[in-house]
Amino acid sequence: MTFTKTSQKFGQWADSRANTVFGLGFASEQQLSKFAEKFQEVKEAARLARDKSQEKIETSSNHSQESGRDTPSSTRASSVNGTDDEKASHGSPADEHLKSENDKLKTALAQSSMNVRKWETELQTLRESNARLSAALQESAASVEQWKIQFLASKEENDQLRNKIEELEAQCDEINKEKERNENLSVRLQELESELQDKELEFEDLRKRGEIVPQLMSECKSVTEKLQAAEQKNKDLEEKVRALRMDVEESKHRQGHLKTELKHFLEALDGKIEELHEFRQGLSKLGVDN
């Protein structure tokens, strides 16, 4: 028989005559080495005992053959029996030693068999756990793929929202420019109103002059013409002011409408950002679970 170390804590006991291989497991590498050394020691002792027994048998056989030529058969039988007794008395300690070592090896083999059954149970448990983990991993992989698709869809939607924000920002810039133009128009309107007041004062002054100074009748005619021209101009200015006021009101209405649109869009954007945040938390939780 032979014993071979196959790993640090495991060995194989091979019996070529019985065509059998036993696997033996040990708690530590020191125990394995000790067992291998003891196995080799017992094997060597058994070989020596076998050789000695073989030599004794051969010697006894030769001696009996030589004695048989000169002594009677009874004497030859006595010699043979004496040789057997000598052989039995000579081989008894080795047999006891071999029996003791055999018992120890049987005990170790039984313990190893129990360990093998225990390891087979643990191996089956590990295989079942591995199968469950593989199924969970496949399910997680499928979930990750689905979340990747959702993430790409959300990213595309986010890009669309970003483009919409850029468009709204451009519209806000136009609104600011329109507001600046409205402010300039308001300033121009105030200047025109101030000029109109000056014209009214001038008109009042000219009318007083026409009442007080009759000699200025000819001049009054020109003043009247100027007054008519001023009134016409005043009407034109009033029309312009009215048109400017309508433009201002329309600009204010359009600006309010754009603000309302921007507010709705920002609310929708906040909702999408919240969804993206929840989706990111889900991905983080999945990474921690994995």
Results as ranks from 00 to 15, higher is better:
Leu196Ser: 06
Asn163Pro: 00
Glu183Ile: 12
Glu202Ile: 05
Ser194Lys: 11
Leu185Ser: 03
Glu180Cys: 03
Val223Ile: 11
Leu216Ile: 05
Asn184Ile: 14
Val213Ala: 08
Leu161Lys: 02
Arg188Trp: 03
Leu161Pro: 00
Gly210Thr: 06
Lys179Cys: 07
Lys221Asn: 05
Lys208Gly: 03
Gln228Trp: 02
Arg207Ser: 11
Thr224Phe: 11
Asp173Pro: 00
Leu161Cys: 01
Gln190Gly: 05
Asn163Leu: 15
Val213Gln: 13
Gln197Met: 08
Ala170Lys: 13
Asn182Met: 14
Asn176Lys: 15
Asn158Leu: 08
Arg181Ile: 06
Leu161Ala: 05
Lys226His: 06
Gly210Ile: 10
Ala170Tyr: 06
Gln190Cys: 02
Ile175Ser: 04
Leu185Ile: 11
Asp205Met: 13
Leu185Thr: 03
Leu201Lys: 12
Gln228Arg: 09
Phe203Arg: 07
Lys164Val: 06
Glu225Tyr: 04
Val187Lys: 09
Ile175Leu: 15
Glu202Leu: 07
Gln228Cys: 04
Lys164Pro: 00
Glu180Met: 08
Gly210Val: 13
Gln171Asn: 03
Gln228Glu: 06
Leu201Pro: 00
Asn184Trp: 01
Val223Leu: 13
Cys220Ser: 14
Met217Asp: 12
Thr224Gly: 06
Cys220Asn: 13
Glu178Leu: 14
Glu178Gln: 12
Glu180Ala: 13
Gln160Ile: 14
Arg207Gln: 15
Asp173Ser: 13
Lys177Arg: 14
Glu180Lys: 05
Ser222Pro: 01
Glu200His: 05
Leu201His: 07
Glu195Asn: 07
Leu192Gly: 00
Lys179Gln: 10
